[in-house]
């Protein structure tokens, strides 16, 4: 087991456990913190995949801004002081869990045999394609910036407009009459 693999398994485990804890926490603030842990794990994965810029942006945007916003809202609403009201019937939770689980099952089953994800190696065995870790420089900000401001400049501008409208929208919605 190489370091990369160790890190991969560690991060994956962290992500999964944290994600599950997001669901199981009674206190929304704990959920937020666990979700931040998930984001950290995912950022770790990005770094592992040599997408440093995305890793940092993920931290800044998700952990640094979005989750702070969540915390703000939760704190201002004083959520968590009283626990979430218990659902009268357990079956909706069961149904949710079962349907989500079956979706996972189906997806995994489909993905496992997806022809697009496997190649034949020299020995003509079917092996999965590799997501090359710690190789390549396309995650660098320079490369991303080049592509972003040439090929994707129109979506970029549109997304900035989207941002602006979201800002205005949030202000308008949040304003007290």
């Amino acid at each position: 087991m190489s370091i990369t693999e160790i890190v991969f398994w560690f991060l994956s485990g962290l992500a999964l456990v944290s994600a599950i804890m997001v669901l199981l926490s009674k206190n929304p603030v704990h959920s937020v913190l666990w979700l931040i842990a998930v984001f950290f794990a995912i950022s770790g994965h990005y770094i592992l995949l040599n997408a440093q810029f995305l890793a940092i942006v993920n931290l800044i945007v998700y952990a640094g801004a979005i989750m702070v916003l969540f915390l703000f809202v939760i704190m201002l609403m004083n959520q968590g002081s009283e626990p979430e009201p218990r659902s009268k019937s357990m079956w909706i939770k069961m149904a949710g869990a079962i349907s989500g689980g079956s979706l996972l099952l189906v997806m995994v089953a489909v993905i496992r045999q997806s022809a697009n994800l496997v190649v034949r190696n020299e020995a003509n065995d079917i092996v999965p394609k590799e997501a090359v870790a710690r190789v390549g420089d396309i995650g660098l900000i320079e490369k991303l910036g080049n592509v972003l401001f040439t090929e994707y400049v129109v979506p970029f501008e549109i997304s900035s407009v989207l941002f602006l409208s979201a800002m205005v929208g949030a202000v308008v919605i949040g304003k007290k009459e």
Binding site: A19, L23, P28, K93, G96, S99, G101, M107
Partner: peptide
């Protein structure tokens, strides 16, 4: 996929909008 499905289960089972 697992993370995604955990998210879906959360959406289905939790009642807190946040």
């Amino acid at each position: 996929a697992t993370l995604f499905c955990i998210g879906i289960i959360g959406v289905l089972t939790r009642r807190n909008a946040i």
